Computed example of a mutant assay.
Amino acid sequence: MQTEFLLVITTCPSEEQAKTLAHALVSNKLAACVQISQGVTSVYEWQGSLCEEQEFTLQIKCLAQHYDAIELTLSKLHSYDVPELIAIPITQGLPAYFDWIKETTQP
């Protein structure tokens, strides 16, 4: 059974880019809400080097049916070669909140 709602997570190198992505997703009705965290420290390996960078995390609340369009939008607008993009199924929550997600993501 496929879940109707997703929490999609990505990170950006700047607050400016995070806001650009969030506005694109919400204004195109692909997401009901995008929360942008304050800077977090990410430690990772990239191209053989150990990296430590400040990033901004985006939590994107959306319908599962919009995932492909979200992935395409982020792939076009994101500055990373390989952006983090993780979708987590939401299996439970406040029904009124789910109704709001549906209402705000209709064309």
Rank of each mutant, 00 (worst) to 15 (best):
A22C: 06
D81R: 02
L77A: 00
F5K: 08
T73N: 06
Q17M: 05
Y67L: 12
F56M: 11
I36Y: 05
T73F: 06
S27N: 13
K61A: 06
H78F: 01
Y97F: 12
Q47L: 15
K102M: 04
T91V: 11
C62A: 13
L63P: 11
Q2E: 12
I101K: 03
I101L: 08
D81H: 03
Q38E: 11
I90R: 02
N28I: 02
T57R: 14
W46S: 12
T3D: 10
D81Y: 00
V40S: 09
F56W: 14
P89D: 12
F5Q: 10
E84N: 02
A64R: 13
T10D: 02
M1C: 05
M1R: 14
E53T: 13
Y97R: 05
Q106T: 10
E15S: 08
Y44L: 14
L30H: 02
E84C: 03
V34G: 02
P95T: 01
P95I: 01
Q47C: 12
W46N: 10
S49P: 06
A22K: 02
L58T: 08
V26S: 07
T57C: 15
L77D: 05
P89S: 15
L7R: 03
I86W: 07
K102D: 07
V34S: 01
L30I: 03
D68S: 15
S79L: 06
L58N: 11
Q35K: 14
I60A: 06
